[in-house]
């Protein structure tokens, strides 16, 4: 069992950060960790860049993950993986969905959507890229990307699969449970292969 986890969950308001962090928090709690989760509500949710912090350890004080402290950044949107990069600690890992939501300045042509893959490689950040579109197509449901990402991330935690499944069952409405458990399974089936970095 790992000693502690400092995790950033980043994305765009409305992508379901809060639900994801609830499931994560509950799984850690049931594994016996002290847990803190910090959420964002209100104005910040309206399609803006959002971050949720999840911390687990023997004793957790601050609910915030500090800059240069995160073991993992989990990004539900590609560009957001870059925005929060200063929070990653040395040798920390970025897990990101290749889903793109262009910000307004990109839509209006005032700025350019960056090439996330090559920037991460250039900086030399360890990362996993989840090619989400084809998986979502297979499930015919765009709303379960987080659960796929959770499935993938769960393999890095050393926590038993059943613990995760129970946390999902406790937090997701019965009607949507089946599709989410399938999405979780699908995430677990993704091969754990880090993207290669430029030398």
């Amino acid at each position: 069992m790992k000693e502690s986890f400092d995790i950033l969950i980043v994305g765009v308001g409305g992508q379901g950060n809060i639900l994801f962090s609830k499931i994560l928090g509950e799984a850690f709690l049931n594994e016996g960790y002290d847990v803190k989760v910090s959420e964002v509500h209100g104005m910040a949710q309206r399609g803006g860049s959002v971050v949720t912090f999840v911390r687990a350890g023997e004793k957790v004080y601050s609910p915030l993950v500090d800059k240069a402290q995160a073991d993992y950044i989990i990004a539900f949107e590609k560009l957001e993986a870059l925005r929060w990069l200063e929070y990653l600690k040395k040798d920390g890992i970025v897990i990101y969905s290749d889903y793109e939501i262009p910000p307004m300045s990109v839509i209006s042509g005032k700025s350019r959507y960056p090439d996330v893959d090559s920037i991460l490689k250039d900086i030399g950040v360890r990362h996993y890229k989840i090619e989400i579109s084809s998986l979502l197509m297979e499930l015919k449901n765009p709303r379960v990307q987080n659960t796929i990402m959770l499935g993938f991330f769960s393999k890095l935690t050393g926590i038993e699969k059943q613990v995760w499944e129970r946390a999902i069952e406790n937090n997701i409405r019965a009607k949507l449970l089946d599709i989410n458990l399938r999405a979780f399974e699908m995430g677990r089936d993704i091969e754990l292969k880090e993207e290669e970095l430029k030398v």
Partner: peptide
């Protein structure tokens, strides 16, 4: 000063909240 291991050099497009 806090040492930051990874930084993105280029300016990223901002993402302020928007009307849904």
């Amino acid at each position: 000063k806090l040492e930051i291991p990874y930084r993105v050099d280029e300016e990223l497009p901002a993402r302020p909240p928007v009307l849904c």
